[in-house]
């Protein structure tokens, strides 16, 4: 074999023209990304930060809901309640009377630790979660929080009410010398559905008599 022929043969090996053009275009693409790299990093960093904050908030909220007993007793009631009743923030923790002044409010039990308040005028629902009724109340409210102190000591973790709880419930059901038929009906309905213990209503009524 002749080396010149070998050289000629090797000289005819060329890459595909389209491939060469494609490789040349990489430089332009690279310049674009290099220019925007800093911006892309900032956006990615911002998104990561937001994700971390949301994650931390979720974990914190989960922790608060799972172990409320360890949190300090704080009532987060609206200022409107205190203005109408004259009760201070601390006093309102145990002030059943505060709720009784608000005639257009209707309250019923939804879960053991949850109250849904229905304002008949505005049809607005307010959800209150009582997490530590033993030492006052810890309430997290959405919307109006006027009746955060409606059932202090009433809805405890124990199925049987404390004496203070029974007394307060009785006052609510039998007030101004007459039975509150609507609230009584709600409590009876809840008892029938098993939402509240069987002896619940009996004890309240007994106390009221």
């Amino acid at each position: 074999m002749d080396t010149d022929k070998l050289r000629n043969t090797l000289g005819k090996i060329h890459p595909d023209r389209a491939l060469v053009e494609r490789v040349k275009s990489y430089q332009a693409q690279r310049a674009f990304f290099a220019m925007n790299r800093r911006k892309l990093y900032r956006i990615a960093y911002g998104m990561a930060l937001v994700f971390v904050v949301i994650l931390a908030a979720g974990i914190y909220r989960g922790y608060m809901e799972k172990e409320p007993g360890e949190e300090p007793s704080v009532i987060r009631a609206g200022d409107e309640t205190r203005e109408q009743t004259g009760a201070s923030r601390v006093e309102s923790q145990n002030a059943l009377t505060a709720a009784c002044f608000l005639e257009d409010q209707e309250a019923y039990v939804y879960e053991n630790q949850r109250i849904i308040l229905l304002d008949e005028c505005t049809s607005e629902k307010v959800e209150i979660i009582i997490t530590n009724p033993e030492e006052g109340m810890v309430c997290y409210t959405s919307g109006r929080a006027d009746l955060a102190a409606l059932f202090p000591g009433l809805f405890q973790n124990e199925p049987v009410l404390s004496e203070e709880g029974q007394r307060q419930a009785a006052v609510l059901v039998y007030r101004n010398g007459a039975w509150d038929e609507k609230l009584l009906g709600i409590l009876e309905g809840d008892q029938a559905e098993g939402v509240i213990p069987e002896e619940y209503l009996e004890k309240i009524l007994e106390f009221a008599r």
Partner: peptide
């Protein structure tokens, strides 16, 4: 040299 020039000059060699 620009990348285009380098690619034009050495494409064959690199490919071979």
């Amino acid at each position: 040299r620009t990348v285009e020039e380098v690619v034009d000059c050495y494409a064959d060699m690199v490919y071979r």
